[in-house]
Design a protein around this nucleic acid. Structure first.
Lengths: 209, 209
DNA sequence: TACTGTGAAATATTTCACAGCA
DNA sequence: TGCTGTGAAATATTTCACAGTA
């Protein structure tokens, strides 16, 4: 079967990843079959939405029965391209950055930090959870050498844009950005923004006055 | 002027918070005036989108000129209800949780952690960045007593649902959820999910194979 | 003269409701 | 019978293009 690269909108992509997460849990629990209704409830979406999302890529279900959990997860991982390991780097080993390095466990098996970078001399050479901290100056070289694809930016806002540009120069294709700033980057570079203050603003706004 | 509570979709809300963030930066830089085009570029959206978003709430701009930075920020903060301080709690003082507590600086002035909770006895009574860690059993009581509105959940996935329900019992209205699980909660409770693995899955999916 | 504000059009996303199959 | 898969309808969101004004 040919797996042509169909267009997936960001919002659909998010849901597909959500389904995959839930399916992994179901596999771990030994479930064999799941209906769109059950999966929908577990993911906080509508059953029709799930069926639409999935049917776009093929016929994965059994009418009158549901979806076979393992099969569907396999299909989703094929669609999403989540089968091989990716190399990551982290830039900015402050409190948040080092917490993320330490926090990284076996549960994130597909993503492996191969290096971290910081500009403060006193941090260089330290090892956090098996990840070595290198000086900022070596970033481009190491990213390039290790064919790193994804980067996590946990620098202050002021440094983030410059860091991002340098990472892209070195071949990075996707960035998880914790800095509270909108990065100005080429269209083909993927960015996910995680600004905790922004999330709190949204919550605060929705919850009172 | 009466500030009626207009409906704001989640995606619009996100952008409004983004605009506010950028406007704060512009204020800090001493900018007086900003056009929809400039603000749009800085936020990564289209100029028409900005004008539509803002015009929904009133006439804040000057034709032929642009928007007055400080005024617009003031209006936005009124619309979003971001003028008063909110009390937060954090549940689950693991690596990520304690990093968030430590990471919390003066830049998040509107949000103040008033307590943290953990179920592991060895952590109880510690103080992280001026925030005391209490036993899980006291969570409901303290949240209720301090009229806490928002909570950050950094527990393992298995504990998150139960914690969330207990928080809601105690009066919490919004949750920032770092646990990799979809919480099943009443509709009137606001939740923002931050699953780092999920973000990486999205990035990986978009960037290769 | 440059902007904003805004209807109308275009596009994207979600839901409905039911045909069809295991 | 109890599901999935799916066109068609409904809804939501974004963009266009230009009138209007400081």
């Amino acid at each position: 079967m040919v797996l042509r690269r169909l267009y997936i909108s960001k919002i659909t992509l998010y849901r597909l990843c959500l389904y995959a997460r839930e399916l992994r849990r179901l596999v771990a629990e030994g479930e064999q079959i799941v209906s769109s209704e059950h999966l929908a409830r577990a993911c906080g979406v509508s059953p029709a939405q799930i069926r639409k999302d999935l049917a776009y890529f093929g016929h994965f279900g059994i009418k009158g029965v549901g979806y076979q959990v393992e099969d569907l997860l396999g299909e989703l991982e094929k669609i999403l391209g989540l089968s091989r390991e990716r190399h990551l780097v982290l830039v900015g080993v402050g409190r948040l950055g080092s917490a993320l390095l330490k926090h990284w466990g076996a549960n994130h098996s597909l993503y492996r930090f191969v290096a971290a970078f910081d500009s403060r001399p006193e941090r260089i050479g330290r090892i956090v959870n098996r990840v070595m901290i290198y000086p900022r100056e070596q970033m481009g070289y190491i990213v390039h050498q290790h064919q790193v694809e994804l980067a996590v930016i946990t620098t202050p806002a002021e440094a983030a844009q410059e860091v991002a540009e340098e990472l892209i120069q070195a071949g990075i294709k996707g960035i998880l950005n914790f800095a509270p700033i909108t990065l100005q980057l080429p269209e083909d570079i993927q960015v996910e923004n995680v600004d905790l203050s922004l999330f709190l603003d949204m919550l605060a706004s929705q919850t009172g006055r």
